[in-house]
Amino acid sequence: MDEEILVKKLKARDQKVFQDFVNEYKDKLFRLAMGFVHDSFLAEDIVQDVFVKLWQNIDSWELGNAKLSTWLYKVTVNHALNVVRSKKKTSNVVDISQFVRESDDGGIEIQIPDNEKNPHNKLENKELAGILRKAINTLPKKQRIAFVLRQYQNMSSKEIAEVMDLSVSNVDVIIHRAKKNLQKQILKLMK
């Protein structure tokens, strides 16, 4: 759908169009968030927040802004970085918040994901997720974002340049540095 028509329909609160839009982008944004948080519950919360806020603020969207999709990527990155930062502060505490959800009636319920039922699988993947999180999070911010956009979105340097407001050649240099640093960090953590 043409972006102008899309925005018009979203402004007119067309739920069907919004649902299609969510379905088109939810996995992309989910993977992008995963690249920062490496936790599917957190990633999903991030994606929810982004779409809810888009819906609530669509009235103030003006054509001539950046593409809606570019905006979505930027906001997802910003939100994911905030989540990572706030998690860092509490990382010494055992975190069960990812399993706790507010139920429909306003109460609290605890959900354990399916893959937790397979302890073998869980441990291995959790360990790898932890290594990735630590390794990627040690990268300087620009390197981290550029690497995640490449690795988790398979974006070209041109697309990354657009999201990050950088030149293409700059992006290539940043990704090269990111990979170098990442290798160092991963091998350090996997000794």
Binding site: Q15, Q19, V22, N23, K26, D27, L29, F30, R31, M34, G35, H38, S40, A43, E44, V47, Q48, F51, V52, W55, N125, L128, A129, I131, L132, A135, Q151, Y152, Q153, N154, Q183, I186, L187, M190
Partner: peptide
Amino acid sequence: KLALALDYANTEAQMSASGDLWNKIN
């Protein structure tokens, strides 16, 4: 070792959001 970690990053990069995400947003 490196490939094990990066393979897992590829796994993460292919994961999908849960099917009821739209319902939650709605």
